[in-house]
Design a protein around this nucleic acid. Sequence first.
RNA 1: GACCCUAUCGUCCAGCGGUUAGGACACCGCCCUUUCACGGCGGGGACCCGGGUUCGAAUCCCGGUAGGGUCGCCA
Length: 503
Amino acid sequence: MPRRRGNAQQPQHRAHLPASICQLLRIPLPSPPIVDESAAISYSPGLMSAPAPVRVRFAPSPTGYLHVGGARTALFNWLYARRTGGTFVLRIEDTDNARNSQAAVDVILSGLRWLGLDWDEGPLTGDADGPVKGAFGPYFQSRRGEIYRRRAEELKAKGMAYEKDGALFFRMTRDPVTIPDQVVGDVVRPLTDREAVDPDWVLIRSDGVPVFHFVNVVDDLEMGITHVIRGEDHLSNTAKHIALFRAFGAEPPKYAHIPLILNLDGSKMSKRDQGASVQSYVDEGYLPEAVINYLSLLGWSSKAATNELFTRDEIAPLFELADINRSNARFDLKKLEHFHFEHARRLSPERFVSIGVEALKKVGIETAGFDPAYVRAALLTAQEKGKLFKELPIWTDFYFVNDDAVVYDAEAKTKALTPASVSALEQLASRFQSLPEYTAAALEAALKGLATELGVKVGVLIAPCRVGCTGRTVGPSLYHLLEVLGRDRVARRLARARTVAAS
RNA sequence: GACCCUAUCGUCCAGCGGUUAGGACACCGCCCUUUCACGGCGGGGACCCGGGUUCGAAUCCCGGUAGGGUCGCCA
């Protein structure tokens, strides 16, 4: 008997309302005092046989940073929406007013934008009262108070909620709740011993602020969310959510709880941990496509694909909830770096150069004063060298300094720029100077020819030449970098190197 | 403490009753290149433990152990 992969069976619990009604309405029938507001809710019997269009959401709380786990949750939701032609909603869970700020929301929006995870509905800016797209707003929970109050009244009217100590309590079911999960299958969640003492829980605090479980369910309900794809840390709580949906007479959405992302040592990843914040990838010079690629493979793998290198648009059509893993994954920076390298080498020259120029600018290397063709050629000699854009300067900085300002690495200098190399430097300079064509091939032939004539190993010539022109013992292919540097620059650098070597 | 989820190389995944247990990253060696890389070839490295079921278990069941999660007038 194969293991259950969840979606094989239907939820067992469509209680309270005849299935046909639930099916037909999709969204629960508003009970008495309920408003209409359903700009986008359509009761179209003619469409009832068609599967409901998928509506998923990412609902982050503005904590000041975008966690990789959150980013992956957003990614999975995005992928599922794209794969099904559904709608990806962004909703800001800022109920806890005290610690929310527009800046904290901006961090989330810019992080998602950097990753390329565009949302179909939601805020356009971090301003809770700012512009939005979509007909199910407001998309900031802090602006949905009226809706929560109305839903609270509904529950009270139904006898499902009662006031005590100034707070509003929900009459939680005492029975075990079955959570049909698309990833782990049916999960039966009985009350824990502590819950059994008093199963009811708070919907609205005595200060009037509604709690997470309540607003989360109300919003999913009001926004017509069909699939809830979220972290496994919410699995147990889903019993509360399902109970609430039922109290509203509504069919809960389908659930898919995805495993968590842990540190390499298996501990929980928190704000300070390496790689926890999406912003750190921006700062380190990672390509967003690399981060997307890596994250997509953490907890998911395609049965259809034969390789691991994808762009998000390539993943989307392959993305099935049934292919999501059940066990937590550990975050391995090394593998992310590998994906970055693979994506970086596939970058178009134009894009590689423009990102490279920015990376250099970040550390104070200005390329604007150089011929664009030179800048381009220079950077492209390093496209398959370093792993991160952060490292680009150590491969290419020498291209952008004056010929008399090349900085010689101390060790390289004592090794390669010695009196013994003076003659080599002079003869090389002379050979290069007389070359009719200043190309990598010609330069290589000239250098190797000279080595043969002199009866020395090419390394004897290469080392002083490289150090003289770049200041380092490692770098891009020597002949190519010489070609890019060009006749004049090389001549000046070799001359200076000769002088330095002689002293 | 109670409840829930999970368990294959160091890491991420494949495997869904019969495989020499496969791939990727990382690691080691060799080749290429007299730079560093890339690339090529090769290597070491895993089914958490114990019981069942079965002719046969990494795969199914039970128990244990371990890791993670939840049990808030946090989200």
